[in-house]
Design a protein around this nucleic acid. Structure first.
Lengths: 225, 225
DNA sequence: CTTGACACAGAACAGGCGTTCGGGTATCAT
DNA sequence: ATGATACCCGAACGCCTGTTCTGTGTCAAG
C-alpha cells in the first residue's frame, strides 16, 4: 500500500478533515463527531481520527473541548456561518493604480489580510468568490465620500452600467478615482458621490479603464482609545 | 410553589433557554447538551429541558437534530458564530433628534430591522449588547463623510473623549450632527470628518447632548442594477 | 369534586461518543 | 538487521447524552 509522507505541514488527510469540519459545521450548525469525521474521510478507526485531530490541534488548526461530544472547532475563524471573507489586496489612492486580483490571491490569504462581511449585507446574487477589498490611503477620495482608512469592497469589472459606482484608472491623468459612472453621448460623466461636488467629464478618446465596481464601503471609527 | 403561567408566547424559561443556547454557542462554538441547559437554567430534570425544547421547536425558535449530541440550534439566524446583530432603530437626519435605544428595543427585534456585522470588524472590548444602528436619511451628514442611505452603528453614550466621533443633538439649533468631538478651554470643537471642512464651535453654555459614539459606518452600493 | 391540561422531578435505558490500549505495517536512517 | 518513526486498525471501557416512562402537584373548567 502506498502512503504519502509529509514531513512538514498538512497532509492530504489533514486537509480533508479540516474541510469536512468546515462543511459539516456550515451545514448542520454544529461540529461533527469523531466517527462522522472518520466515515466521510475514509478512516475506519476512531483512534486514527483522534490521532489526526491531535496533530491538527498541535499545529493550531483546530481547538478541542476534550471529553465532550462534538467538541471540535476550526481555529481559523470563519467561512462558517453566514459570512464570507474578502481578501485585502492592498491600498487604493489617487496617485496610483489599484491592485488587481489575480487567481493566486484567492484561495490562500491570511485572516489578517482580509475582511469578514455578513452575507445579509450583500446583494443576493453577488458572486462572493471574486470580490476583493482595498484600504483607502490618504484623503484623495473624499469627493466619493470615502475617507482615509476606509475599506472599499470591489467586484472586478471592465465595464459598468450607468449609475454604478466604479473604480477607474485614468491613465492620461495618472489617477485612480471612485465615481458614479454615466455614459453620455460623446463622453463619460464621472459623478462624485458627494452631491455638492461637480462631475468631471472624460472624452471618449481619453483613456478610461474601469477596474471594478464598488459593492460596499466600511468605515471603522475605533482607532483611538 | 408559585408558577407563572403563560398562555401565549414565550415564557420566562423559554427565553432563558434561548438566551443560554445563544451564549453557549457563542462562547464554545458548539451547542450545549440538554443537561447543560438544565444546569444553567435551573432545571433539574433532563426531561423538562426536553419538554421545553420540544415547545421551542414547535414554535419555530429552534431546530433539533434528533438523536445526536448537542443537536440544538437557534433558527433565528445569527447571534451565532462570529457575528452579531445590531437593531436598526430608525433614521438619523439633521433636522430631527435621533431615536435613543430603550430596553424594549433589545432582545426582540426582527431580522429585517437589523444589521449583521462580523465580530472581527469590531474593537475587541466593545460591548456588543447595546449597540444600535441608524439609517442616514438625506444629505445632511455629508460633512461627516456619511451619505444618504448609509448605516451608522452607534454605542450609547452621554460623554465622549477627545477625538471620538459622536452623534450630538444641538437643541439650540434643533440639529443632529455627526462630528469628531474635542473639548477645549471654554468651548467644544466639533470637527467634520471631511478634512477640507472647517469645525464648528459650541460654547459651553450652549446645549450639547451627546447621544452616542460612532463605531462603524457601512455603505452598501448596490441599489440599482 | 372530578377531570384534564400543564409544569415539573427523577430514574432508567440505549446509543452516542471520546479515550485508551494492544497490535499491526510500511519507510527510513543507523 | 534494527530500531525509530509515522500511519493505521479494532476493540473495549466508561462517561455523555437524548429519550422515555412513571409519578406529583397545581390550576382552571365542567
Amino acid at each position: 500500500m502506498m502512503m504519502v509522507r509529509k514531513s512538514k505541514g498538512l497532509g492530504e488527510r489533514h486537509q480533508k478533515i479540516l474541510d469536512f469540519i468546515g462543511d459539516y459545521q456550515r451545514e448542520y450548525k454544529h461540529p461533527p463527531s469523531i466517527r462522522e469525521i472518520g466515515e466521510h474521510c475514509g478512516i475506519s478507526s476512531t483512534s486514527v481520527v483522534n490521532y489526526y485531530l491531535d496533530q491538527l490541534e498541535k499545529s493550531g488548526n483546530i481547538e478541542r473541548d476534550r471529553k465532550i461530544s462534538r467538541g471540535v472547532r476550526l481555529t481559523n475563524p470563519a467561512l462558517l456561518g453566514d459570512m464570507f471573507r474578502v481578501p485585502m489586496l492592498g491600498v487604493i489612492q489617487a496617485g496610483e493604480p489599484i491592485p488587481v486580483p489575480s487567481n493566486a490571491d484567492f484561495g490562500a490569504f491570511t485572516p489578517e489580510d482580509s475582511v469578514e462581511v455578513a452575507m445579509s449585507l450583500m446583494p443576493p446574487k453577488e458572486k462572493v468568490r471574486d470580490l476583493f477589498a482595498l484600504k483607502v490611503q490618504g484623503d484623495s477620495m473624499i469627493d466619493a465620500m470615502v475617507n482615509d482608512g476606509d475599506i472599499v469592497i470591489l467586484k472586478p469589472a471592465q465595464e459598468a452600467r450607468n449609475g454604478e459606482m466604479v473604480a477607474v484608472w485614468l491613465s492620461d491623468r495618472n489617477e485612480t478615482t471612485l465615481k458614479f459612472f454615466f455614459k453620455e453621448k460623446d463622453r463619460y460623466r464621472l459623478q462624485p458621490a458627494n452631491p455638492t461636488m461637480k462631475p468631471i467629464y472624460i472624452d471618449k478618446n481619453e483613456a478610461l479603464e474601469i477596474k471594478g465596481k464598488v459593492v460596499m464601503v466600511i468605515r471603522r471609527v475605533d482607532r483611538q482609545n
